[in-house]
Amino acid sequence: MEVPILKQGAFLIATFQAALSDADLNQLRMGLVQQVVKFRSRAVIVDVTAMDVMDSFASRTLREIAHMIRLRGAETVIVGIQPEVAFAMVQLGLTLEGVATALDLEEGLAYLNERFRITK
């Protein structure tokens, strides 16, 4: 399953679908980092609104994406985690520590705009 990656100015936006397999997630991880390098993006928004289950693998992949992108000097924001999914995640002990989160795409963009306006 292809994950669409949109370029929006200095940001990249990746939108996850509901039924991503491990292979899809791995592919996405590589794809995103390559695009960040290619477009010299300052930040990536990963939109997980459509995901109805976030298990340990998906959660770990998101953290790894965020860490790899940070190594490229850019930032990651995870947006759109559903309330029920968030509840299940914390039960599993998956808290995405150290990764920025926002309610939805709009909030994620607002957060990044604010951040980059302040730092520069």
Binding site: I81, A86, M89, V90, T95, T101, L103, G108
Partner: peptide, 12 residues
């Protein structure tokens, strides 16, 4: 603690 963590996952 879980409530605090889950809220953060929603960006709050």
């Amino acid at each position: 603690v879980q409530t605090v963590e889950a809220s953060r996952l929603l960006g709050a």
